[in-house]
């Protein structure tokens, strides 16, 4: 157990209380005229950033909230001030 995440409701907790919900990709695109490729881009494709990424988490074993956080994937640590560092 190494990762900790800061739930906006419950505070800093053990990472295993949470569910990873993917890279932040923005709201669902409009359906009209969307091509298979751009739909796939939204659903499956990842940037796989080796560095700080914005991502979704759910505090599944706690309060259940979905939230975004910034995490550095090269050290598996949450980043306090992502804008300042990125």
């Amino acid at each position: 157990m190494a990762l900790t995440l800061t739930c906006p409701v419950c505070g800093k907790r053990n990472g295993y209380e949470f569910r990873y919900g993917g890279e932040e990709k923005g709201p669902r695109p409009d359906e009209a005229g969307i091509t298979p490729r751009s739909w796939c881009e939204y659903v499956h494709m990842n940037q796989c950033v080796a560095g700080i990424q914005k991502e979704w988490w759910c505090h599944k074993d706690g309060c259940g909230v979905w939230f975004t956080t910034h995490r550095d994937t090269t050290c598996n640590l949450e980043v306090d001030k992502p804008e300042a560092q990125s």
Binding site: C10, N14, Y16, E17, H59, K60, D61
Partner: peptide
């Protein structure tokens, strides 16, 4: 209140 796992169960 703490909401979290206790004996693995939320």
């Amino acid at each position: 209140l703490l909401q979290g796992p206790f004996s693995h169960v939320p």
